[in-house]
Design a protein around this nucleic acid. Structure first.
Lengths: 236, 236
DNA sequence: CGCTTTATTATGTGCAGACATATTGCCTCC
DNA sequence: GGAGGCAATATGTCTGCACATAATAAAGCG
């Protein structure tokens, strides 16, 4: 029984590893051209499509740059890409081994979201649901959620019991989005957030803002504020 | 001249868009099975490999889940992945339209990096270069860099003029890494950082910590501290 | 009835060949 | 020498086929 993946010598993963090895060992230093696909296919004794697959993955991860006719070269400025996983908060908490809890703090329908003026595409006069909530892990404050929801797109959320299911989960289950924007920053806790998170007013908080759209229509804007002890990590 | 990509009707991108559309329109709601590759290929009038390519991309972005024999279904918990681009700071600054500047604050070689005890794999008694520096944009403080470099791996950096080229760039140009870990967090500026960033001591700062390894050997650990006004954004 | 073995099935990958497309760089013409 | 056109070239993609692999469902059996 193969405990390690066997991965025959001609798999694209093999070539991926081998090329990556040559780059890391500086046999192919940054900026250097690497052989074209046909030559590599010949060297590895496989089809060009297999080499292409391997190199495509390396290009996606930013290790190499590829351009038609110009060829493939080792990236000079390795703008490495790290993928952040953005789960529903319940999963985030449970994934860390905590018991998830949730409390609705406030809920109101406003017609003119003044605070959102920076978001150009947000409707000017539409009715908007504003929700503030607290997410808990093992009964202790985990994150504060401040959310606006476009009622034009998701009118049914008006009838949802957001004391039971968080707006976060309700939206994930009930409306799709086609694109989103995430902004990470540090900020100072205002009085209300400090109170529910149990920290000093003005203490550092870690903020994740996310706006989602379905095509050109904004669906929701949310700011999650975490205590400064929070860490968002990823590997490259 | 085609201002839009032509993308004939049988390209994998076309299928990618079409399937995504059906998911976003909830024709295929979360949790639903979608037709298998052979059927989709028949519907779209293309080869199975083309459908495979389209679905593979969708699976990578977290929109669908695929398992052999079990088939493909729309992701129930859309753990969407956002890719974070981690450039060299010079490029980061210049990409925002600023003029890059750099100042070395301190530089010393220590043998026992006490502060690093949380990093298990860091050498216990090895000589380590400790560098503190300030990155500037248009002459104003942009980020504070606090870096330790493993001199076992990169002894040549001892002779480098880090007043001219930042350790950041020296390392990118001179040593490769095979994997890294990035941790994002918020923190409070200590006195030294507050001074160089020009903020109050205790003010919120945005921190990016990064550790890189070449295989199992740690190369460098760095913490970048940005003023609270800094934003790290990405789209999904 | 529960366990093991076997067949089935959907995805994962590889191959050879073909054509498409974007660049580059040469070549011509003025 | 400069501008424009054209050929060469490396990557991008598609096809049709084949076999590999994983996971489920069915069959067999004690």
């Amino acid at each position: 029984m193969p405990s390690e993946a066997p991965e025959g010598p001609f798999s694209w993963k093999h070539i991926h590893r081998e090329v990556l090895w040559r780059i890391q060992s500086r046999e192919w230093p940054p900026g250097a051209m690497i052989p074209n696909e046909v030559d590599l296919a010949e060297e590895f004794g496989c089809a060009r499509a297999t080499v292409n697959r391997a190199l495509r993955e390396l290009a996606r991860s930013g290790v190499i740059d590829r351009r038609r006719k110009a060829g493939t070269r080792v990236a000079l400025n390795p703008v490495r890409r790290a993928t952040l996983e953005i789960p529903v908060i319940r999963q985030e908490v449970e994934g860390r081994g905590g018991t998830y809890g949730y409390a609705l703090l406030s809920r109101e329908i406003v017609s003119s979201p003044a605070d959102m003026s920076d978001l150009a595409a947000w409707p000017e006069d539409a009715h908007v649901l504003h929700v503030r909530a607290l997410h808990l892990s093992d009964g202790r404050p985990y994150a504060h959620e401040d959310r606006w929801v476009n009622l034009e797109v998701a009118p049914e959320i008006e009838g949802a019991d957001l004391g039971e299911v968080s707006a976060n989960e309700w939206l994930v289950r009930n409306v799709s989005y086609s694109r989103g924007r995430i902004v990470l920053s540090a900020g100072a806790a205002d009085a209300r957030i400090a109170e529910v998170l149990g920290c000093e007013s003005g203490a550092p908080v870690f903020q994740i803002e996310r706006t989602t759209w379905l095509h050109e229509t904004p669906i929701t804007w949310v700011r999650l504020s975490y205590p400064a002890s929070h860490r968002l990590s990823t590997s490259i």
